[in-house]
Design a protein around this nucleic acid. Structure first.
Length: 404
DNA sequence: TCTGGGGTCCTAGGACCC
DNA sequence: TCTGGGGTCCTAGGACCC
């Protein structure tokens, strides 16, 4: 097999940089990239965590995912700005379109990361040269910066893009693994998270090099498939392809952390219905049907539990999915104070690939017409305006309005 | 702990069938 | 049936990612 030529492009402090340039475009003079700043959620809504940070905030020790309260303690003049996914999507598309000039084999790994398979697109040039060109062009033409990782597989390209930031290009070829990767702590390895790292520490594995040299069989015995994966990653082995064809989603769900804990099935049911409406709206928008419905509850002391149920036949009907969601919610609710509620649909299939016979019962048809007309109104008047029955959209639950 | 919201994949146990 | 083992499906929970 020919050696593959892979790049990983990673936007530096994406949400913060994109917010910064959007503000500058609107006439603001302050570039929030130059001050201690973060993009954060809303503390009053109990979603006050750091989503992105400026370099100055990072140098105070602020980390992504911590609470704004914690971040402020580290950095007393920290400025907090809200997120705006609409503009992030726009900048993400700008980046994607620029990268399309280099290859059509691009995997959009997340809103701010892409893998590029350049194997057939070097045309006499080198991979490193292309990486440097991309790095320069993004800064010049789009106004934000990226790190580019250069390697012969996705894992190594991703590890490379995570080296020194911002606005840098790094290679991580096989012969560079011992020198550039093995001295890093295991927490830096992709797919080693907060639960596994302490377990590895306990058996004396502290660096990626320690892991690479450890007995693979013992890791498999201890961690199963995950053990095999982590050993391969530590040794720079990854044969996965760049998934440039966007895949159909396998699940669609929505969840919300409530501004205050709630108690009792009546209140929980209202939220479950509101979430079901959001979820089924998205299902119908993409012409998908769900085979499995699940509901997640998180208690005030952060215990999660969930139930799921397979449906008799696939559906996107709000009524049908809500009936099941409500049923399993009632089954599992133990009378706790609830902090978070989630509704998710799984095992999705394409509506157009399901035989029409599933729809020829007239009740389903009627239900489908109701859903469709509600969807139409939602599109026309904006999402939050239209609800079914007893004022059931999440916005109203979050900010209760006086009854008219 | 003043701890988001969107996902994917894996595991383990029980039911059921052959 | 006092029975064994394998395969598949379903469910609950957990780990990880950005």
């Amino acid at each position: 097999m020919r050696e593959r030529q892979i790049l990983h492009v990673d936007v530096n402090n994406a949400f913060l940089s994109w917010t910064a340039i959007e503000r500058l475009k609107e006439g603001e003079t302050l570039d929030i990239r130059e001050i201690p700043a973060v993009i954060g959620g809303n503390e009053e809504m109990r979603s006050g965590i750091v989503l992105a940070k400026s370099m100055k905030a990072k140098s105070c020790g602020v980390v992504t995912g911590e609470t704004l309260y914690q971040a402020r303690k580290k950095c007393n003049n920290l400025q907090v700005y809200p997120s705006n996914y609409k503009i992030y999507k726009k900048y993400s598309n700008d980046l994607y379109n620029l990268l399309l000039e280099y290859t059509d084999k691009i995997e959009r790994f997340s809103i701010d990361e892409c893998f590029l398979d350049m194997t057939e697109y070097l045309a006499g040039s080198t991979l490193l040269y292309k990486a440097k060109e991309i790095n320069k062009r993004v800064e010049k033409e789009l106004g934000f910066t990226v790190n580019v990782g250069v390697a012969h597989n996705k894992l190594l390209a991703k590890m490379a893009s995570d080296f020194e930031k911002p606005n840098k290009v790094h290679t991580l070829y096989e012969n560079e693994i011992p020198q550039k990767m093995w001295n890093l702590p295991i927490s830096e390895l992709f797919m080693l998270g907060r639960k596994t790292v302490p377990k590895l520490y306990n058996i004396g594995i502290k660096s990626i090099g320690d892991l690479a040299k450890f007995d693979e069989k013992i890791l498999i015995k201890k961690f199963g498939k995950h053990g095999k994966l982590m050993w391969e990653y530590a040794n720079g082995i990854d044969n996965s392809e760049v998934q440039y064809e966007p895949e159909e989603p396998k699940s669609i769900g929505n969840s919300i952390t409530l501004p205050t804990d709630i108690f009792g099935l009546d209140k929980i049911d209202e939220i479950v219905l509101a979430l079901t409406e959001q979820v089924t709206y998205r299902l119908r928008k993409y012409d998908l049907l769900a085979n499995v419905v699940s509901v997640q509850l998180r208690t005030k002391d952060f215990k999660d539990y969930s139930h799921q149920r397979k449906l008799i036949s696939p559906t996107s009907s709000t009524r049908e999915i809500y009936d099941v969601a409500r049923e399993i919610t009632h089954e599992m609710y133990k009378g706790d104070f609830i902090r978070l509620i989630g509704v998710r649909t799984d095992d999705l299939c394409d509506k157009n690939q399901i035989q029409l016979s599933l729809f020829d019962n007239s009740n389903s048809k009627k239900q489908e017409r109701i859903d469709k007309s509600i969807d139409f109104l939602k599109e026309k008047y904006g999402y939050s305006k239209i609800t079914r029955g007893t004022v059931m959209n999440v916005e109203n639950i979050v900010k209760p309005k006086r009854k008219e």
